[in-house]
Amino acid sequence: MNNIVTIAAADIYAAHDLAMITPIASDTALTERALTNVFCFTNRDDQTGAAIARYLYDVMGKRRAVLIETETMYGHSMACAFSRAFLSSDLWPRLFRCLPQAPICSPPRQ
C-alpha cells in the first residue's frame, strides 16, 4: 500500500485490532501516530531526507542543490524532509525548489 492508503487504513486496522505490516509506507504522518498495530519495514522520510542531505554535504562536498519534486504524497514528503535537513545546515539559501504549485514545507524543527 502507498502512504495515502496506509494512513487511511491504519485507523480501521487498529479499531479491529489487526496488525498492519507495510514494506513501503514511509511518511512521518503514519509513523508519528505511534499506532501499536502498524509495523513499517523502511526508513521514515525525514530520516531518509536527512541522510541524503548529509551525504551530499559531507561525502560529495555539495554546497548547492536543485530539488525537483514529483506531484505525489511521497514526492512531497521526501522533498520536505530533504529541504528541512538541507536548510537546517549552513547551505541555505542555496536550495532551489522546482515545483511552483507545491505547498511550502514547514520550517526545520529546532
Rank of each mutant, 00 (worst) to 15 (best):
M1V: 07
L18C: 11
R109P: 04
T42H: 08
R44F: 09
C105F: 07
A9S: 06
D11W: 12
M60P: 00
F39D: 01
N3E: 05
C40H: 02
D11N: 12
S77C: 02
L95P: 01
Y57D: 13
R94L: 10
Y55C: 06
G49K: 03
I68E: 10
A81G: 07
G49H: 01
V38E: 00
A50R: 12
T48G: 09
F39A: 06
E71W: 04
G75H: 03
T70D: 15
A9W: 05
A102Y: 02
C80D: 02
N3S: 11
A79K: 02
M20R: 02
I4T: 14
L87T: 11
A34E: 11
F41C: 14
L99F: 00
F41S: 10
R84D: 04
E32V: 05
S77M: 05
A65S: 13
A51Y: 04
D17S: 11
D11T: 13
T72W: 11
A25L: 02
A19W: 13
D58I: 13
R44D: 05
Y55H: 14
Q47K: 14
R33M: 10
I52S: 04
S83M: 07
I68D: 02
T48P: 01
A10F: 08
E69Q: 13
T70F: 10
P23A: 09
L95V: 04
S89A: 03
D90Y: 01
N2F: 10
T72Y: 12
R44H: 06
N3V: 08
E32S: 08
Q47E: 08
R64C: 14
M73R: 11
G75D: 04
L56C: 11
L18D: 08
H76L: 05
M73P: 02
L18W: 10
W92P: 00
R54L: 15
D11S: 14
K62I: 02
P108F: 09
A53W: 02
T31K: 10
S88N: 11
L67R: 10
G49Q: 04
I4S: 14
Q101V: 03
R94Q: 06
G75V: 02
A8R: 10
A10D: 08
G75R: 06
I68G: 03
C98M: 12
C40K: 01
M1H: 11
L91R: 07
L99V: 00
L87H: 07
S88D: 12
T42Q: 08
Q110K: 11
D46G: 04
Q47H: 05
S26R: 08
N37P: 05
S26A: 14
E69V: 04
I7G: 03
A9Q: 05
K62R: 15
S83A: 13
A50F: 06
R84H: 13
D90K: 02
S106M: 15
N37D: 08
I12V: 12
T22S: 15
F39M: 09
A10P: 03
R54M: 13
P100D: 11
D17R: 15
C98T: 06
R109F: 12
A102K: 00
L56M: 15
T31M: 09
N37E: 06
R33S: 03
T72D: 09
R84P: 00
A51P: 01
A51L: 13
A50Y: 06
N43P: 13
L35A: 03
W92A: 04
V38Q: 00
M78S: 00
D46M: 14
Q47D: 10
F86N: 01
T48S: 13
R63C: 06
R63K: 15
